[in-house]
Design a protein around this nucleic acid. Sequence first.
RNA 1: GCUCGGAUGGCGGAAUAGGUAGACGCGAGGGACUUAAAAUCCCUUGGCCGCAAGGCUGUGCGGGUUCGAUUCCCGCUCCGAGUACCA
Length: 927
Amino acid sequence: MEYNFQEIEKKWQAFWKENNVYRVDIDLSRPKYYVLDMFPYPSGAGLHVGHPLGYIASDIYARYKTLKGYNALHPMGYDSFGLPAEQYAIQTGTHPAVTTENNIERYRKQLDNIGFSFDWSREIRTSDPKYYKWTQWAFIKMFQSYYCFDVNQARPIEELVDCFQQQGSYGLNVACEEKMLFSAEEWNAKSEREQQEILMNYRLAYLGDSMVNWCPQLGTVLANDEVINGLSERGGFPVERKKMKQWSLRITAYAQRLLDGLAAVDWPEPLKEIQTNWIGRSEGASMFFEIKGLQEKIEIFTTRPDTIFGATFMVLAPEHEVVATLATPEYQTQVCEYVTWAKNRSEIERMAERKVSGQFTGAYAINPFTGNEIPIYIADYVLMGYGTGAIMAVPAHDSRDFAFARHFSLPIIQVVRQPNEKIIPVEEWEESYDSKDGAMINSGFINGMEVKKAISAVNDKIVELGIGEKKINYRLRDAIFSRQRYWGEPIPVYYKDGIPYVLDEKELPLTLPEVDKYLPTETGDPPLARAKHWKTKEGYPLETSTMPGFAGSSAYYLRYMDPNNETALCSPESVNYWQNVDLYLGGREHATGHLIYSRFWNKFLFDLGLTFNDEPFKKLINQGMIQGRSNFVYRIVGSNKFVSCNLKSPYETQELHVDVNIVSNDILDIEKFKKWRPEFEKSEFILEDDGKYHCGWGVEKMGKRYHNVVNPDDIAERYGADTLRLYEMFLGPLEQSKPWDTNGIEGVFRFLKKFWRLFHNENYEFCVSEEIAVKEELKVLHKTIKKIEEDIERFSFNTAVSAFMICINELTDLKCNKREILEPLTILISSFAPHIAEELWSLLGHSASVTKAAFPKFNEAYLVENSFEYPVSINGKTRFKLSLPIDAPISDIEKAALATEEVKKWIEGKQVRKVIVVPKKIINIVV
RNA sequence: GCUCGGAUGGCGGAAUAGGUAGACGCGAGGGACUUAAAAUCCCUUGGCCGCAAGGCUGUGCGGGUUCGAUUCCCGCUCCGAGUACCA
């Protein structure tokens, strides 16, 4: 039979399904290996050829690990809550659950077409109440916990209550919104409402006033990572800053652990760096400045306490709470105006025009070290959200302060002199000197000290004077956890007398109620407020916000370990066996979202004793994007004439995208083009000498609007899933972005046909010889085993595919059809092209799936050579080759090389200055 | 602005520890088989010079280290990604 991929693939996909071939269970006799893909959001558009790239790579690795004797867990599911289904519901009234179900069905069909080894018995969906029960459960646990920095762990909130009852809040080292000080008596005297309000300050999931990113068009708040350049990630709508009462997760409590944990994981360095920057740790000091004529003090944060003697003014964020009391009567109006102006400026405006602005308040602070009075300004370059919202400005050594000082003609004092500095008066400086390299001047007791020493000296002094302390600040913000939307997990909270309480675990899941419309109510409440009886049994109103997208994806990898457990997220046995994810594959775009949140979530569960490891994902690989390769046609402006790409220069043309599926090797199929769009039906063409219309091309994102979408189903239909899998890997390095170009696929398709033909005679009858293989054939096999194993281990799948091609070419040349060679080769290729491998494996007479086979053992002995062909270079330029015994001593190699005719010719009487011999590498002769 | 990547034929890319640059595949050109097409197979294919043997040149640009650099170091250009007043 000829290579009939359609029949073969259908047959084996059915076989795998019927026989549960890819089902895995806990098996203590085998080591485990957990391979995970970032699960998809099932969008309405279905998969394009770029989506399965990571799944194919992980599938190859999971299959490889299984062949290597591991018990490989390779699950798949759907991140099925999300905005698109909800917006579709708003437009059409279709319940998001229905849309989601349909999309999942389509996704599943497409995935099944590619022949993955997913254990579908473990499928999960984040929108399934059986699953989101555990998302809600984790929220409750966070509500019932606080974070203690002494033990660096989340602890039950009862412990904190005990502590308050016995000793009050003095001396606590815990994570909180604001430091509160009260004694045990004071605590015990407080009302239930007051106590609950205080506890909210400590809970890991808390309801609090926070500055949020409010998106009016979407009618919801967004997390920082969901806002890109002042626009919403979904939809690209403007986002404003607004103060709102919202649920948040105190992820900042884990900032240091999130940072430290990065050292322990095998992730790409750039990704770790993105996370490090996002967490943004900075060491410095906080300091209180007295205000002339006022009782109040202002706390500032600085990373350069050493420059305190150069602090010539102070700047507050416009939203800073003391601004109102601070402004002197004569400046009151201007200050108010500035605050209003700053508040009304959108994020985009702020980003677009970054010019110096600010307003003097009329007030003065006292520099605690110099005793000088320094003016207090407000300006929007100081942000309320970072540090204390107030800074001491050192214009000589901070570029922003420098620009501000120049603009408002404020004094600049140099306090750091860089090594070997040419002395220029500060008035003539063109920029500030921000570097920490140098020594202090004009700085009292720290004069002459190096910056580093000065920092610690000033820090000590601050503590000594009782005006501040050393402080570490993080850029990371708490994660806003409320979304004013329908299609998400309901937050399991009810309100009694306006005080929020969490539901009892026994009442979970709190399922999503039916609503008449998926829009906010007339009063601006979230869609859930439309639900009838959205109350507890006792009649208390339930929370109407739902959880954000990252909630459901934060612990899904744990659920795969034990997906049907009704009494726990996952059993201790399953966690102890599967532990954490060994290999995680996904895109880099999740660096500051999902990958931070799920690390946090996992650490929290770890503190509760529920996860095996502090870090959820041991090794991570970011697969690159597959871009689209677009084709263009050129219409002569004002006509219906199209000119071929290479002839277009004399004309004024308009470049139009053309559907890549009617173009082959950049040659336009004119008939299909005419039928593609009615307006092209009567178009004319200027063709090239070969009588063809050549299209232009370019690399763009793959998407409908560029007409460059290639559907994997079409490829599988024409060439088969095995060809698709191989070609996706063959395109280029896994981590690199590369354009899809269907033209090249013929090459791998030819390769599979060639591979098939090795097992068959000229009449396409299965024909494998039982003869013993010769040395040459064994060499080819073992060379390939070695190469494939090495390439898979370093995730270099593109070179692995090349190695297969070379191997098959060589065996075809050798006319080798021996079982001894072909059988191991079938196993080898089975992780890349499982369907053809299964078919050939069964033709070879095996009844069990090739999945149950063992990865062939590599034998070095077949590769041992007794001679090596040395490239011989003269002055570094390779001239000819010389075959010499492999174990020849260096002196012999040298002599042999010098004795050759070629060398004599090249030297031509010149003096040999040096001979370099690197065994099994090269001979270089210098003349 | 800052941070991090990247640049190799007509195209995708290879060179794993500084040692034959361009593997493998596509495309292109030529040929075999065929009435023809498909399929298959063979040859050529970085550039320049040469009938040829062969020579010169060549991994974004300029320099350096080395017997030898796509690989290491310094400077620059261009492209991509992340981030954005974080004190």
